[in-house]
Design a protein around this nucleic acid. Structure first.
Lengths: 229, 229
DNA sequence: CCTAGAAAGATATGA
DNA sequence: TCATATCTTTCTAGG
């Protein structure tokens, strides 16, 4: 059985149906498709090459990878279209692209036990239909080894916190990391008086005030300082 | 440090050297290259697209995947060249190709603690050099299991808050936006009791609990999982 | 994602 | 204690 997000094009639905697959349209939270066979549940994210490149640029891809790999032991991202053309369209450098490929492959799981995400590049949507068809068939045939169970690491909480703290203006990843060491829950950070925030390495008086104001509201602060109005 | 098989072309060696990488030529058993940084040992198999297609056909690819994944926790196969052209050259059908692609991605990974093999397709050998360069650099930087930097403009307070809230597991941009409407400072969110969080549109009981626990510490939660209480 | 550069802040040093 | 120089971090812009 294949679950298909309601946002996906109608004609793909028809085509899949033609192939004799049982498809159900539904609003999906995480991926665009979910292939369910026996005990296997494999999400598939379909992206046009253009969207793929764009999502690398704005960081959406990494969030999605994170979502997929923390929620499923195994999933696919299928890029449809010719990537190098999309790169040209967007004026995206090859260096940046290659680097982000490595970044995503390294980040998604390497030495831990998170789920893995396989990225596949196909040329046309027709290939994509084939892809789903074969994926379904292989699973039916049981031509798979048992999928691993994912165990979410404690680190995930910490990473989410780091991300959270680094949303505070003036706080980047480095300072966020140090903040997490001291304030391991948002509550602690909120309850901390300014002098305590100041004690964190890399955070001085001015910044501590700014952080405090951001958390508690206070006076609207000029972010970045130079506000030429 | 990069180990490079003696069979690999001389000019790649020179190029890598130019990039300031320390390369040692050596007869390698398993892969063509091995990138060693800190505790990481990552083998890289370089294949021309022609050879890739051929190795799918005669089953060599499966053997190599097996070798890599049983000996190393993480490795790369880098296919250099345009695959669809290689398919034409060899008279290999798209169906067969896609089918075997799935076959190898399903087989290579799953089960137990076997390593995963990531396949990447690049167009030119120059890209391949870049690939090794960045792989080495990322490992040096320890940029391995780190989350991506969030690069959104923090131009105003509200945007920053939305980003911040959306770092909470289970909260995406949409929910974050609604949260900000109700809790316009992090302090208010922290001080809110669960029933108040629940009242926000799109947030149910379970999620409200999860959010609360994330903010206040509480029991370690499995992201996306059901929570026992 | 990358690069590069500007701006702001933290820190060390010496008088 | 306070200025000044230096290093680090964040943020912005453009590809």
């Amino acid at each position: 059985m294949i679950l298909m997000d309601t946002n996906e094009p109608e004609w793909i639905y028809s085509k899949l149906h033609e192939q004799g697959l049982k498809v159900i349209r539904k609003k999906l939270e995480i991926a665009d498709y979910i292939v369910k066979v026996h005990e296997y549940v494999i999400p598939v994210e379909r992206k046009t090459s253009n969207d793929y490149v764009a999502s690398i640029m704005d960081g959406r891809l990494f969030k999605q990878l994170f979502e997929l790999s923390t929620n499923y032991p195994f999933s696919y991202i299928v890029v449809v279209g010719i990537i190098s053309e999309a790169l040209m369209d967007r004026g995206f450098s090859r260096r940046a692209f290659i680097s982000s490929l490595i970044g995503s492959s390294l980040k998604r799981s390497p030495y831990g036990c998170r789920g893995q995400v396989v990225t596949i590049n196909l040329e046309t949507d027709y290939d994509f239909i084939l892809f789903l068809y074969f994926l379904h068939r292989k699973l039916m045939e049981g031509d798979v080894e048992r999928l691993p169970r994912i165990n979410v690491r404690k680190r995930d909480r910490k990473e989410a916190l780091i991300m959270m703290y680094s949303c505070i203006p003036g706080v980047g990843v480095d300072r966020a990391r140090k903040l997490v060491e001291v304030f391991d829950t948002p509550e602690k950070l909120i309850r901390a008086p300014i002098y305590q925030i100041m004690r964190v390495e890399g955070i001085g008086e001015k910044l501590a005030y700014k952080i405090y104001r951001f958390l508690h509201g206070g006076v609207e602060d000029e972010i970045g300082g130079t506000t030429t109005r």
